[in-house]
Simulated scan of single mutants.
Amino acid sequence: MNVEKAILDAGYHLPLPPAAGGNYVPAKTVGKLVFLSGVISSDVNGVITGRAGDGCGVEEGYAAAQACVLTHLAVLRQHLGSLDAIKSIVSVNGYVNAVPEFADSPKVINGASDLLVKVFGEAGRHVRAAIGVSALPRNALVELQMIVEIE
């Protein structure tokens, strides 16, 4: 499977991978698993900010979650040398910057899950958590953390 072609065919492109923002690594391989540090939602204009339920809705969050997936894939390409080394997506933990009453965090994180399945097919199906939180770094709308299995 040519993952980068699937990304392009789906109408997306990979951003430059971000530098670590502290004393940690963006990705770490342990056996056949790659653990990815959390990435915040960003695009060519910078950090996608906001708070779900206070000026941002499910649609904005959905797009922000997709942006996080693209950033993770850029990190994986840099870490592995090729996205074709990915066998499956194992786990996604999604955090949504939200007001306490916002109950649609799962709908926001569907942006990440839907994109992963679109690109990887059945290998993109994963376990996940979708959690609303009171704040994220740099006022990001979404933060995502993933674990992937490699060949």
Rank of each mutant, 00 (worst) to 15 (best):
A67E: 03
L141F: 13
A112H: 12
Y24I: 03
N139G: 08
A112I: 07
G57I: 13
M146E: 01
L136P: 00
L136R: 01
V117R: 07
G111A: 11
A64M: 00
V25P: 02
L116W: 04
F102K: 00
T71Y: 13
A112D: 12
V92W: 02
A103W: 11
L36A: 11
K87T: 07
A65N: 00
H13T: 15
N2E: 13
E143Q: 13
V127D: 07
L36G: 06
I40K: 02
E4A: 04
G121R: 08
I48P: 05
A52D: 02
A64K: 02
G61M: 06
I150W: 09
R125G: 13
N93H: 05
P26A: 12
P17T: 13
V108M: 05
V127R: 04
M146P: 01
V3P: 00
E122T: 15
V108P: 09
N97M: 08
E60Y: 08
H126C: 11
C56I: 14
P17N: 13
G124R: 10
C68F: 03
D9S: 06
T29C: 06
I147A: 03
L136A: 01
R138M: 15
A103F: 12
I131E: 12
V90I: 04
G53A: 12
Q78R: 05
H79F: 07
A10K: 01
C68H: 01
L144D: 05
T29R: 14
N110P: 00
S134W: 11
G11D: 02
E122C: 08
F120Q: 14
G94R: 04
L115N: 13
E59G: 06
L80M: 06
V30R: 06
T49W: 02
V3Q: 00
A135N: 10
G38V: 03
D9P: 01
G31Y: 04
L116D: 04
I40Y: 07
P137R: 07
K87E: 14
V148G: 00
L136N: 01
D84K: 10
R51F: 01
S134A: 15
A19Y: 13
V47K: 06
H72I: 02
P106K: 10
V3T: 07
D9K: 04
G46K: 04
V90K: 07
N23W: 12
A27Q: 07
L14T: 09
I109R: 07
L14A: 11
F120M: 15
G57V: 13
A140Y: 08
L70W: 12
S88M: 12
N45R: 08
Y62V: 06
